[in-house]
Nucleic acid binder design. Structure first.
Lengths: 206, 206
DNA sequence: TACTTCAGTGTACATGTGTTCGCTGAAGTT
DNA sequence: AACTTCAGCGAACACATGTACACTGAAGTA
């Protein structure tokens, strides 16, 4: 049961996925990527595409899932392996920007489809971002001992700022990139301090 | 010199612009709007389009400019007419969300082309957002008496949060919309307080 | 009135698209 | 060895697109 058949199928499936990702760039979004272009790049006939995906939409959703997963794992490991010397905020931001730097097209996919034309895509990206928020809110609640809803609102803000500055990072020059990282860290600190002060005000006993 | 000619030309030019804006929706972005579709909606022959715009790109840039201008004027007037009873933050957020509610397609245009495929578009939107930031930073510097760079960093964060939550507002239901406004206000307060605390720390004499 | 300008038109063409259909041949099964 | 499955193929299709071109006729001009 080597499954030569299934193995080969898996291989071209991956080829299609890679082809799609490789074609993404600043000038080309998934939305205006055609089935035929993907097939060409993957080295298969246009019609063979249908053996693996019903649609370009189905392929897109697969990509979003995969990219979201990658990013989530990365951030999770960043939170785990941060040493107590450097702040968790700094580590997270640097990790995130590193990801953006090294996978610009992956990130662009999430960024663009977040406000894209297909409801399914928007929801899929929203789901990924939601994972982020929940995980971070959870972390804040237990580590910073914040009330649940303060943690949630703060987490939302942190994710929004980071994700968005990641978008700016894409088009930035070397100098601006450095400043962007610093500014992001500062902004996250503003939020963290503001939230902490707010929580204290509400419950001074803590 | 009634200029019947020029008058008529201006009229169809506006018809084209309106046609384009009317076709925008959650399911249709400017990027996948074709010249022919716009012409059809505007009630002119496809080729007549060229009498007014060199390109779809040129039309798009015009739209971005126009939309940005509208939004900017709105926010500026909001800042001016806020009565001292309600906080400037609350007024600004409510004004912004009202704009998003009433001009969803206009806002969608800015939102999407911000991370779009055309460099010219991205830069145009970035320019509009930059106006926002600068005006707000200026306001913060004079009103809250913050150091220039703290004001800038804070303004960036405020704009990012507001703009982004506006995007979520688009797809939100009635209940979520109300919560979104509240959360946005809270988040902006976090930032404002965090920034103020930071500034005080740096320069306790103030 | 004769002449020019030019917004708007209709035809035409080359190009790229998604998708249907029937075929092929190797892999898998009995 | 005989039979089935099924990933991949090429030809063909109907369709929409951007744009070139030559045209018309009303508005503007002298």
């Amino acid at each position: 049961m080597a499954g030569i058949r299934a193995q080969q199928k898996q291989k071209t499936r991956q080829a299609i996925i890679d082809a799609a990702l490789n074609q993404l760039s600043a000038e080309q979004s998934f939305a205006n990527l055609s089935l035929r272009e993907v097939a060409r790049e993957a080295g298969i006939a246009p019609t063979s595409f249908y053996r693996h995906f019903k649609d370009m939409e189905e392929l897109g959703l697969t990509l979003v899932d995969e990219c979201g997963l990658t990013l989530r794992q990365l951030m999770r490991s960043a939170r785990k392996r941060f040493d107590s010397q450097t702040s968790i905020i700094k580590v997270s931001v640097e990790t995130f920007m590193e990801f953006v730097e090294q996978n610009p097209n992956t990130f662009r996919l999430l960024l663009r489809e977040r406000s894209g034309t297909s409801r399914a895509f928007r929801e899929a990206v929203a789901r990924e971002v939601e994972f982020f928020r929940l995980e971070l809110a959870d972390y804040l609640e237990t580590e910073s001992k914040l009330p649940t809803d303060v943690a949630r609102i703060q987490a939302d803000a942190l994710v929004t700022i980071t994700f968005n500055n990641g978008a700016e990072y894409l088009d930035a020059g070397e100098h601006k990139k450095r400043r962007l990282i610093e500014d992001t860290i500062t902004q996250l600190r503003f939020i963290a301090n503001g939230a902490a002060a707010f929580a204290k005000e509400e419950d001074p006993t803590d």
